[in-house]
Nucleic acid binder design. Structure first.
Lengths: 137, 137
DNA sequence: ATAAACCTTAGAGTTAGATACAAGGTCAAT
DNA sequence: ATTGACCTTGTATCTAACTCTAAGGTTTAT
């Protein structure tokens, strides 16, 4: 049985974060002490590990909520349900990757075009590229 | 001279966005009509184009603010100043790319491990991977 | 002249995920 | 018995970039 501070320390998070997760329906301690203190057992700890691991692969708290409702009632779900969540997330991540890759390419070409030296910025090719009314998007 | 709605339409943004940019010191119309209406001239329009183009390569509004203060007073800056902004942004984008690439790889391997079929989720390898107390991070 | 479409301001709400603060109760050690 | 570390609740704040609402004034077309 761990108190909130002990569990937080164990997973290198803040007590505030645990209360936040509780308020948002992700993880409530199984019991409270007579003094009202939150007490977390091994199952709670496993659930927290699940949450943090899901976070570490990019799931949002809302998505983790969905994952948890499956996790806690596995027999009513099938593999396809779980895989769909993962694949949707994958698509989302890939979309973001695409956008960032475009940003990267644009920035790189701006950077390459600029001398980066002590010359006045009056003819800086970066600024010119951003100004130019002929190039769009 | 364009009214706020006309300029907004021209660039496919909302009038709210233009007021927002004004409030945040990015773009104020050169003049106001006798009725108090905002009136944007060609220079304002060019500035908006600059802002939107900077946004399209990934700069935040704060960063665009910096870029604009250079753009509007070029002679007091040198290429190195501009290039530094671009290169810092580039590093930031690359850092995000790295994180998302890790997410992608993790999700992909979760997805690959799962049959995705109509079998009960009780032995779903995705859930097992997220549960497993032995694998960390 | 009246309705639709436009404009003004100030200020509140949204999303996500915390993070901080205030006012107070509890516990362990000295 | 008192200090300090811990816990409780509720509420507020933060970032970013809008987005929306309210209450009202203006323009344009019919």
């Amino acid at each position: 049985m761990l108190k909130i501070g002990q569990l937080a320390d164990k997973f290198a998070i803040k007590t505030d974060t645990l209360r936040f997760y509780e308020k948002h329906g992700l993880l409530a301690p199984s019991i409270r002490g007579a003094n009202g203190y939150r007490l977390y057992n091994d199952k709670d700890e496993a659930k927290l590990r699940f949450i943090l691991r899901a976070k570490s692969v990019g799931f949002s708290l809302n998505e983790i909520h969905e994952l948890l409702s499956i996790e806690l009632d596995k027999s009513h779900w099938v593999c396809a349900d779980v895989k769909t969540l993962v694949d949707n997330k994958l698509l989302e991540i890939q979309k973001k990757l695409l956008e960032l890759t475009k940003f990267e390419a644009s920035l790189q070409s701006l950077s390459n075009a600029c001398c980066g030296g002590p010359d006045s910025a009056e003819h800086c090719s970066i600024l010119e590229a951003l100004e130019d009314p002929h190039v769009d998007k």
